[in-house]
Amino acid sequence: MEDFRKKLYEDIIIKQISRNNDVETAHKCIETLSRVVNNIIDSPNDERKRRLKEKSKTFQSNICGAQGGVEFLVKIGFRAKVIDFEKFYVLEHPLTDNPDSPEMEKLKVAQEILQDFLKKVKDRAELASKMQAKEKAAEELRRKAVLEKIDEDKERRVAARERLQARRKSQEEQETTINEESNSADDSADTADTTDTQSQPEQFYRAYHSSHYRQPNQKQD
């Protein structure tokens, strides 16, 4: 029986169900197999508990859907069988309430292994869930930090745009003031030129005469 326990645990549970499935799939598979074994142990002579329809949703999802699930059933004595044109996995030999029978002993070994490993899987599932929650929280913090940085960049761009607009407005006001002062100076200069021109005395033109150039002592003819 120890050889059976070792092969069931190492070859099926560890090397197949645990190693080749994700935590959630392995958990569902182990939980379903444990329920099947418990039902048979509780009612060993109930044929309905020893017969599993292959097309059922639970069987397809939790046992066929996990690598090693069907192999586990075969290892503890289930065999594929067609009944009324439907495929079943059946534990054919009837069991008795004798706890010392080899068949019952195998089922109890399987029950013990499944319950022990189910606890380990649950612990791993809880750890994985905590890690996912932690990663989700960290991702949320990263996303929040990115959004805050975007808002800060937006505020900086708005502030920079406002400073640029204020600088341009100040330059425009300065240019307007300079132009006004320049125009005022030009107007003042034009006014001064007009005033100077008007203040100059009028010069009258006198007709040219030769006496203007006659020497004082020159005798006249």
Rank of each mutant, 00 (worst) to 15 (best):
T25Q: 10
A26N: 02
H27F: 10
K28P: 07
C29N: 11
C29T: 10
T32Q: 08
T32M: 11
L33P: 01
L33D: 00
L33N: 00
V37F: 05
V37A: 07
V37R: 04
N38D: 15
N39I: 00
I40L: 13
I40H: 00
I41K: 03
D42L: 11
S43H: 11
P44A: 05
P44F: 04
D46N: 12
E47G: 01
R48F: 11
R48T: 14
K49S: 07
K49N: 06
R51V: 04
R51G: 01
K53V: 11
E54D: 12
E54W: 01
E54L: 03
K55M: 10
K55E: 15
K57L: 10
K57Y: 11
T58D: 09
Q60H: 09
N62M: 04
N62E: 10
A66V: 02
Q67W: 08
G68R: 04
V70F: 01
V70L: 01
F72L: 10
V74M: 05
V74P: 03
K75H: 05
K75S: 15
A80E: 09
K81F: 06
I83H: 13
D84H: 14
F85H: 10
F85C: 04
F85E: 15
E86V: 08
E86W: 12
K87C: 09
F88C: 07
H93V: 04
H93E: 12
H93R: 15
P94I: 05
L95D: 02
L95V: 01
D97V: 02
D97K: 14
P99A: 09
P99T: 05
P99V: 06
D100H: 09
D100N: 15
D100T: 11
S101H: 13
S101I: 05
E103D: 13
M104V: 04
M104Y: 09
L107V: 01
V109I: 13
V109T: 02
A110W: 00
I113W: 00
L114C: 04
L114F: 04
Q115K: 13
L118G: 03
L118Q: 09
K119F: 06
V121K: 00
K122L: 06
R124T: 15
R124H: 12
A125G: 07
E126Y: 05
E126H: 10
E126M: 06
L127R: 14
S129M: 05
K130P: 04
K130W: 04
M131D: 15
Q132C: 10
Q132T: 15
A133K: 14
K134M: 14
E135Y: 13
K136D: 13
A137R: 03
A138E: 12
E139H: 11
E140Y: 06
E140K: 03
L141C: 02
R142H: 05
R142F: 11
R142M: 09
R142E: 13
R143D: 06
K144M: 10
K144S: 04
A145I: 09
A145C: 04
V146M: 04
V146F: 06
L147W: 02
E148P: 02
I150M: 08
D151H: 13
D151V: 14
D153Q: 12
K154S: 10
K154I: 03
E155L: 07
R156D: 14
R157M: 07
A160F: 14
R161C: 09
R163P: 07
L164R: 15
L164I: 15
